[in-house]
Each structure stands twice: as structure tokens, then as C-alpha cells.
């Protein structure tokens, strides 16, 4: 339960109490209960229809929110995972491999958070080292060779800020992915399923089409980080989240996100099958749209998407 859901749970508790009381004392409280049930519904609509950017961050980070593996399992067949960057390591914070999507071979790659604390420790909370980005690049180059579309799932707080990561070239590994992804001849569709944290997210994000889940966020810096740097006060994270314009709706309005996937009320965790189905429809539609382009047109399409992003003044 999130803090902002408290009023809903309080009402639901009251209903439970009433029902217990009614059963115990054999009185009819149907009217009162149905009144409260209506109130719960109204409250839910009021809260979930007006989620603040910060509340969406909380939903995007939720441990029970579906992860990359969950989407792979639900949407793809014959997933075969491949490991390692061929240089140093296999980074469990980024997973990938080949699979079948609607009968077509594809490459799937994504940040992988843990589904519990133990998993999060193993997966480093989905915060990748250079090894992860290099594994992703290796799989993308392989996809390019065999003409397989690439689907990336973005779900990370950011690339890992660690000593070994810096020594092995965290910057270079992300930078390399950006340029190499720009030159891929196959369709690249990136889907932000949770938190899209800065350069660590973009390392899997130079795509032809960017899809975002309704409660996913994508930001240049975490709201906490922005609050502490720009406002000198980390507790102002809610205001920072608002100012940074990080929601799926914001990115759609900037023309950066191409589609927003509707989530069940309260978030994807409330009805996984529904969100898988919603994504599947849009993903298929965008992939089919891209498959009409030839290999050179695919590169040009991506170039056009990014070269036009930016709002600046030009005084002539």
C-alpha cells in the first residue's frame, strides 16, 4: 500500500467492521455498507485519476510491479537467454536473448530488477555496470546481422555509480550504445515499464519508437537528486518530480514517447494480464508499422526522430 492509498484502505476497513458487526449482532447494515462501497469507488477514482508525478514514481518503483522477465514470459515465445559481454562479465542487471513474437524471431533485452530483496541484491536493483550495456550491444549487433527486430524494456533507477563501473568505462559503454543503436538497420522499439533513470535508461533507449506505460517515468535525474541539487533540499522531491515533467503523458506531449499504454486502476500490479494485453496490441501495431521500412530507411527513421528533439531559440 502506498501512503496516498490510505483513505481507500481506511474506508475498506470500515466496511469490513460494519459487516462483521452486522453478522455478529444480526442487524441489517446493507444500506450503510453499500453507501460506503460507493464512497470507496469515488475515493479510488478521485485518487487514481489524479495521481501526482511523485505518486507515479512510487508506483513505477513498486517491488510487485511486473519486470522485464514478466513481460518476456507473457508476450513472447521460446525465449532463450544469452549471457555475457565477452569481455569481463555477465551482468544480471540487464538480461537478453532471442525469442519469437507473433511467429517472428526477435531480440529482447531489458533491465532486470529483483522481484524481492534477495533478487534485488543479485540484480543490483536493475542498475547495470558497463558489462550490462556491452552485453546489450553485443545482442543488438547480433540482431542487426540476422535482421531481427529489437525490443528493449527499460526499468532502472540509472546506471550503477560504483568504482569498478567507472574503471571499466561506464560512460563509454553507454555512449557507445547510443551511437551504435543510432546505426542499427532493424526496428528498435523501447518500452519504459517502470523507472527510466537517465543515461542508464537511454543506454537501451535509442529507438525508432518509444512506448511508455501510463505510470512509468523517464527522467534526466531522479526527483530526489534534482531536489537536492537544484533546490538544495532532498525533501522537495515531490515538487522536483512535478517540475521535471517525467510522466508518460509529459513525454507524449513533447513528442518523445510515441505511445502510452493504459494501466489497470492503481497500477500494472493490480492486473498484470490486462497490462500485458494492452502492451501487446500497441507493440504489434508499431512493429508492423516499422517492418515496411528497408534497412537504410530504418536508420533514417531513427535519425529523424532524435535530430528533431529540442526546444531552443534562434535569434536571426
Amino acid at each position: 500500500m502506498f501512503d496516498f492509498e490510505k483513505p481507500i484502505y481506511e474506508l475498506e476497513e470500515k466496511i469490513e467492521e460494519l459487516e462483521k458487526y452486522a453478522a455478529k449482532n444480526k442487524v441489517d447494515l446493507t444500506k450503510e455498507v453499500s453507501f460506503l462501497e460507493k464512497k470507496v469507488n469515488d475515493k479510488k477514482n478521485e485518487i487514481y485519476d489524479n495521481l501526482t508525478p511523485w505518486q507515479r514514481v512510487e508506483i513505477a518503483r513498486y517491488i510487485k510491479r511486473p519486470t522485464t522477465y514478466d513481460y518476456i514470459e507473457a508476450l513472447f515465445e521460446e525465449f532463450t537467454e544469452f549471457y555475457g559481454d565477452r569481455v569481463h562479465n555477465d551482468d544480471p542487471a540487464i538480461v537478453g536473448g532471442i525469442a519469437s513474437y507473433k511467429g517472428r524471431p526477435v531480440t529482447v533485452i531489458g533491465h532486470q530488477r529483483g522481484r524481492d530483496t534477495k533478487g534485488n541484491i543479485h540484480r543490483n536493483f536493475g542498475m547495470a555496470h558497463p558489462d550490462g550495456y556491452r552485453k546489450a550491444l553485443r545482442l543488438m549487433k547480433q540482431a542487426d546481422k540476422f535482421n531481427r527486430p529489437i525490443i528493449c524494456f527499460i526499468d532502472t533507477k540509472g546506471a550503477y555509480p560504483g568504482k569498478a563501473a567507472e574503471e571499466r568505462g561506464q560512460s563509454e559503454s553507454i555512449a557507445r550504445n547510443l551511437v551504435e543503436m543510432a546505426g542499427l538497420h532493424v526496428p528498435v522499439i523501447s518500452v519504459v515499464i517502470g523507472e527510466g533513470g537517465s543515461g542508464g535508461a537511454l543506454g537501451l533507449g535509442v529507438c525508432n519508437r518509444l512506448i511508455m506505460l501510463e505510470n512509468a517515468t523517464y527522467s534526466v535525474i531522479s526527483p530526489e537528486g534534482a531536489a537536492s541539487i537544484l533546490f538544495k533540499d532532498a525533501s522537495l522531491k515531490e515538487i522536483a518530480a512535478e517540475s521535471l515533467k517525467i510522466t508518460a503523458a509529459d513525454l507524449k506531449s513533447f513528442g518523445i514517447a510515441d505511445a502510452v499504454i493504459e494501466e489497470p486502476q492503481g497500477g500494472a500490479h493490480n492486473d498484470r494480464d490486462q497490462v500485458f494485453e494492452n502492451l501487446d496490441g500497441i507493440l504489434r501495431e508499431h512493429l508492423e508499422g516499422l517492418l515496411v521500412l528497408d534497412r537504410e530507411e530504418m536508420v533514417a527513421d531513427r535519425y529523424d526522430k532524435y535530430v528533431n528533439i529540442g526546444i531552443y531559440d534562434e535569434q536571426l
Partner: peptide
């Protein structure tokens, strides 16, 4: 914000 990230 995100527009600056996209400049990368």
C-alpha cells in the same frame, strides 16, 4: 528535464 537527456 527529459529534453536535455534526449540531446545525448
Amino acid at each position: 528535464g527529459i529534453i536535455s537527456l534526449m540531446q545525448m
